[in-house]
């Protein structure tokens, strides 16, 4: 993609985000503008049971609920954007600020295909098609063709500059699949978050927890004796110190994936909040100069977010590789 297309896409996405805000404004004109912007941002950050493109165009998504040992499946169109309740198999559900509640006080567990789940599925299919096609292109010739030409340097970068230096030549191969998948998944889904589709999958703690948990499980499962030795019985320190260090080290192993989870979540959330707040300033200023200034700032910020999208994917992959490296490292030097 050349730089012109890139800038064009960015301008379009900023404008489209603007138009969403503008429409919201037009409809609830009587409310205080600041509260309204806050609400729009909060709404944008939340997952939803409908896939709303504009006010006129929205797609209902399937709702899957596990209540008291029963599975209830129905379409989110039955809620009419949270205005009505729906009764299925004798249980009445309604939408309360994006959460599904049951009328008689049962606690349904929500396994619905929400907007975010839809996008996880889209990225799932996209990556599957993209990379299997890339793999097939190698059967024809040793050099990549089409998409592969763009993706291969990234794949090689992850292998040569992330996996090998951090994990080591000997063990890196078994982690490659995870590192590559997690990098491309986070990157692509972050980029989706910057499009005017209004999704932001990685600013859900459930998503980042899932990703960080896989890193943690992989680290723990593949760790060698020396890794555990360094946690529970630190070599080279006096015995009383060993008892103090063990819980600290053990806590450290949990803090590592926790910081992975928080970092991705917070960066993406903060990026979205700041970007939308600056867009919101346009409606607060209502003036020619202030609004164009906010637009310029929002544009610059969108560019920065584009960088952050890749950087967070890089850092997540990098730190995962670092943790894997510490798990398989052989300490024979002391």
């Amino acid at each position: 993609m050349n730089i012109k297309t890139l800038i064009f896409t960015l301008v379009i996405s900023v404008f489209s985000s603007l138009s969403i805000l503008a429409e919201e404004h037009a409809i609830h004109g009587e409310k205080d503008i600041k509260t309204e912007i806050k609400e729009t941002i909060a709404h944008h950050l939340m997952d939803s049971h409908d896939f709303i493109l504009t006010h006129d165009l929205s797609f209902p998504l399937p709702i899957i609920l596990y209540t008291d040992g029963n599975l209830d499946i129905f379409s989110s169109a039955n809620f009419h954007h949270g205005t009505t309740s729906h009764t299925v198999n004798g249980r009445t559900y309604s939408l309360d600020h994006g959460h599904i509640v049951e009328a008689s006080g049962l606690h349904p567990i929500d396994f619905s295909i929400t907007k975010n789940v839809t996008f996880i599925m889209i990225v799932f299919l996209m990556m599957l098609i993209m990379f299997t096609r890339m793999a097939k292109s190698y059967k024809k010739s040793a050099l990549p063709s089409g998409m592969g030409r763009l993706l291969e340097p990234i794949v090689l970068y992850i292998r040569d500059d992330i996996a090998i230096p951090n994990i080591g030549e000997k063990h890196y191969k078994k982690y490659m699949s995870y590192l590559l998948t997690v990098f491309f998944f986070i990157w692509i889904i972050n980029l989706f978050g910057l499009t005017p589709l209004g999704v932001n999958v990685t600013n859900n703690i459930a998503v980042t927890l899932s990703l960080a948990l896989i890193t943690y499980v992989l680290t723990t499962v593949t760790a060698n004796k020396s890794y555990w030795g360094h946690i529970f019985w630190m070599p080279g320190v006096p015995v009383p110190m060993k008892f103090i260090l063990a819980p600290i080290e053990l806590l450290g192993t949990i803090i590592k994936p926790f910081s992975l989870m928080i970092r991705l979540y917070a960066n993406i959330t903060a990026g979205h909040v700041v970007l939308m707040s600056i867009l919101g300033l346009i409606f607060i200023f209502k003036g020619w100069i202030g609004s164009s200034l906010s637009f310029g700032l929002a544009f610059a910020l969108a560019l920065l977010e584009l960088l952050v999208a890749a950087l967070q994917a890089y850092i997540f992959t990098m730190l995962s590789a670092l943790y894997f490296g510490s798990a398989v490292e052989e300490h024979d030097d002391h």
Partner: peptide, 24 residues
């Protein structure tokens, strides 16, 4: 440069984690 950048990003990421922990 490459090695320094990697080390820099890791260190920055760790500090950033503390910052976020405080915010949350």
């Amino acid at each position: 440069t490459a090695k320094i950048q990697t080390a820099m990003l890791i260190a920055a990421a760790l500090i950033e984690g503390i910052g976020f922990a405080a915010l949350f």
